[in-house]
Nucleic acid binder design. Structure first.
Length: 775
DNA sequence: AAACAGTTATACCCC
DNA sequence: ATAACTGTTT
């Protein structure tokens, strides 16, 4: 089992029970180490399969872990605590819903549901949505929860923030009333449950002697606290991660957790996995050189035995269109060399870039697949069907109620619903309960809808899960509705797919033939859910303790279980995985994947690094990690492409090449188009005089009126008597000295992105801002 | 008066 | 592609 591992991997796998941090570089066999560690612990009887807990960030990697584990050992992995943070917290909360203060049937809001709930709240409470945009409110609430803060503990230093806290509180009340829980709440509740309830905490602390964490660099503050609490004094935490691949700060991930973990627990038990089994030398060296520009790293250098391979190819094109055309030609050539299409990936920083690339591929009839669109359970028709199903489980789920009350349309409009909402608010009840209170007309249609829901809820007590799903799709009118739609064929297919998903799920969970709505009492208490394949020494003793402490056990109906599954799984977003097609995705989506050939497109200032991230140094470092992730996806060949101009939001924008290109030593690069002597953007100050010059293609120098070939592009904008160009030094009365790093628009609409020495990057309207051109 | 259907404005960085 | 707006239908 371990003899195929390299010495570092072996050391990690066979570490005695103690806290440890494994710094696992890209392509260093991270998942393998994790799974082998689990297998080793079990095989050497240091842990039973049910005495360890492994947590990951995606369902996919949780599944992969279990698959690999069962390949290593002849054990039944069912019932093991291996899953995502959200999945495990959900499991815990379901088991102890009473102690957690939740309804047994609590529903999970995904972020779209959450946003809808917030919008509804803001409307209902008459809050100005200009001053409090629902998106910002959502960010505020989730941010607070990820820090472990309830409304009472959030710092509110000004009126605006105080109001936000009030909204946060109102939102919590609303969730409480409706019996719903958002993603962040799942974690916070589970944390508070462990914190407040000593018997439960001690039970889990006793049970899980080994806690293994994947992708530790992506944990947020709350997740780390949860792990600490769960580990208590006795358990060992085996944390695997790569601080250089931390790219989720925008959703709360805290890179600092890695260093903190080392301080708190690992005390020098840090194992570095630096041998890379994926890429050739030039690619790795480029990645190493780039990431070396970040500060505060734990430090790590990837190496390979594979040789240096091909240099990284760099291509600069005048426009995004030409970039895409070049891309298509090059892809054809790579395919011509015998590469599989599915082994070629085109990566981009932002989704907006995919359009042009897709268009070019489509025109050339090259099959491609875009990742990261809507996932199965996020599609509107599926969400509609799920909303009906949720109402079967909990009639007071107002979010679901509002989603489908008039879909398909049944003559219940905004006016009626407004009245209903008012009634519900006045009586502090759900919309469902408020229906009988409605007097007068308009109520007729509402009543009919209520009866429909009641009827379907009744069916849930009789029909099996797949039958119920089918029944609901039919009797809700969803099927008829989409049959009448011009573009409804796909949606009908997805609805059918939902029935299939329910069938598969019911079979996997042994729900066959059971009524969807009937609550299942598991036949044994918590610890005894162990199928007890290899006899766990402590299980009998554990079960006895559990029976005393826990009367409530996992109570769930097949329907409830399926709805949880739908919320937490979100489904695959790759429709037809079988076909051999070029892989298109954002850099974020590419994390964890690898390809023979990788194209990283749009390697430009303002795009990659993204302009929004340049405001603070931490943002720039995250962008650099993002580039690091992108580079390390490539096995054999890597291309970096950039365009001098690009259509964005209907405007042409001009940008310089990314500073990241200049952070990779030239010895690893091979420019396929001439490298211009463009300025190197050092952090804030670079000397004037280093701007663009004309090049071999006869593109203009930026000096001013130069004859240009027909296709060439302006890199400057004139406003009044001033002429602005990229790379120009300017001064602003308030912001001080800066440099133009991007231009867009023309005439009165002209705007410039300016990187100021002291205040970061700002976008200014050239017609308004009084800029002086620096000498 | 209320609900519906079709049109137009704006949008988006990443999960 | 969602939200806001407009004209038409019940």
């Amino acid at each position: 089992m371990i003899d195929q591992l390299n010495p570092e991997q072996q050391a990690a796998v066979t570490l005695p029970p103690q806290h440890a941090l494994v710094l696992a570089g890209a392509g260093s066999g991270k998942t393998r180490v994790l799974t082998t560690r689990m297998a080793w612990l079990i095989q050497t009887s240091q842990a039973s399969p049910f005495g360890l807990l492994a947590v990951t960030f995606t369902n996919k990697s949780a599944r992969e872990m279990l698959t690999r584990l069962s390949a290593l050992l002849p054990i039944n992995t069912r019932g093991m605590w291996v899953g995502t943070f959200h999945g495990l917290c959900n499991r815990m909360l379901r088991a102890h819903h009473r102690d957690a203060g939740l309804l047994q049937t609590f529903q999970i809001l995904d972020s779209a549901d959450q946003l809808a709930a917030i919008k509804r709240l803001i409307k209902g409470a008459g809050i100005d949505d200009e001053k409090y945009p629902p998106r910002d409110v959502q960010r505020f609430i989730n941010g607070a929860k990820e820090e472990g803060l309830r409304p009472g503990s959030v710092d509110a230093w000004d009126a605006h923030r105080r109001r936000l806290v009030e909204i946060y509180q109102m939102y919590q009340d609303q969730c409480e009333r409706e019996g719903v829980v958002d993603f962040a709440e799942l974690l916070l509740r589970a944390y508070e449950l462990l914190q407040r309830n000593a018997p439960i905490r001690e039970h889990y602390q006793r049970r899980f002697q080994h806690i293994l964490v994947d992708e530790f660099q992506d944990t947020n503050t709350l997740q780390y606290q949860w792990l600490k609490l769960l580990a208590g004094e006795g358990a060992s935490i085996f944390a695997v991660g790569d601080d250089d691949q931390s790219i989720y700060a925008f959703r709360g991930a805290n890179v600092g957790n890695m260093a903190e973990f080392e301080r708190d627990y690992a005390h020098g038990t840090v194992i570095r996995l630096e041998q890379n089994y994926r890429s050739y030398g030039h690619i790795l060296d480029s990645a190493n050189a780039l990431i070396a520009h970040n500060t505060g790293r734990l430090g790590k250098n990837l190496w390979t035995e594979q040789g240096e391979g091909e240099p990284v190819r760099v291509v600069e094109q005048p426009s995004d269109l030409l970039e895409a055309h070049w891309l298509v030609d090059e892809i054809k050539a790579v395919i011509g060399e015998g590469s599989l299409r599915s082994e070629i990936a085109v990566l981009y920083r932002s989704n907006a870039q995919s359009r042009v690339i897709e268009h070019a591929l489509f025109s050339s009839r090259i099959p491609y697949k875009v990742y990261g669109g809507l996932r199965f359970f996020e599609r509107q028709e599926v969400k509609h069907a799920l909303a009906y199903l949720r109402l079967m489980d909990n009639l007071h789920d107002d979010t679901s109620w509002l989603r489908v009350v008039n879909f398909p349309t049944r003559g219940i409009g905004a006016r009626t619903l407004e009245q209903l909402s008012d009634l519900a608010r006045q009586n502090n009840t759900s919309l469902y309960k408020a229906v009988p209170l409605m007097s007068g007309k308009g109520g007729g249609n509402l009543l009919k809808f209520t009866e429909l829901i009641q009827q379907m809820a009744y069916e849930a007590q009789i029909l099996s899960l797949p039958e119920l799903v089918e029944h609901v799709i039919h009797h809700s009118g969803l099927r008829t509705f989409y049959q009448g739609e011009k573009e409804g064929a796909d949606r009908l297919e997805n609805l059918q797919e939902l029935v299939n998903a329910a069938t598969v799920f019911a079979a996997e969970e042994n729900f066959d033939g059971l009524p969807a709505g009937r609550i299942l009492m598991p036949d044994a208490p918590l610890a005894a859910e162990d199928p007890a394949q290899p006899p766990a020494a402590d299980s009998a003793e554990d079960a006895a303790t559990d029976a005393d402490v826990f009367s409530p056990v996992v109570q769930m109906s097949p329907l409830g279980a399926f709805l949880s599954h739908a919320s937490l799984e979100a489904g695959d977003n790759q429709a037809q995985a079988g076909q051999d097609a070029i892989q298109l995705m954002t850099v974020h989506a590419a994390k964890g994947l690898e390809f023979d050939t990788v194209f990283i497109t749009g390697v430009e200032e303002g795009l990659f690094p993204h302009e929004n991230s340049l405001i603070e140094a931490a943002g720039l470092e995250e962008e650099r990690r993002l580039m690091y992730v992108a580079i390390t996806r490539a096995r054999q060949r890597l291309y970096l492409t950039l365009a001098q101009s690009r259509m964005l939001h209907g405007q042409t924008r001009y940008a310089m090449r990314s500073r990241f290109l200049d952070e990779i030593p030239e010895e690893h690069l091979k420019w396929l188009t001439p490298r211009e002597r463009a300025p190197v953007v050092a952090n804030s100050n670079w000397s004037a005089g280093a701007y663009r010059r004309g090049d071999a293609y006869g593109r203009p120098s930026t000096g001013g009126a130069v004859a240009r070939p027909a296709r060439s592009l302006t890199t400057g904008v004139s406003v009044g008597d001033k002429h602005f160009r990229i790379g120009q030094g300017v001064t602003h009365a308030k912001f001080g000295e800066g440099t133009i790093i991007g231009l867009s628009g023309a005439g009165v609409d002209a705007q410039a992105q300016i990187q100021f020495r002291d205040v970061g990057t700002k976008t200014l309207a050239l017609g308004i801002a009084k800029l002086e051109i620096a000498g």
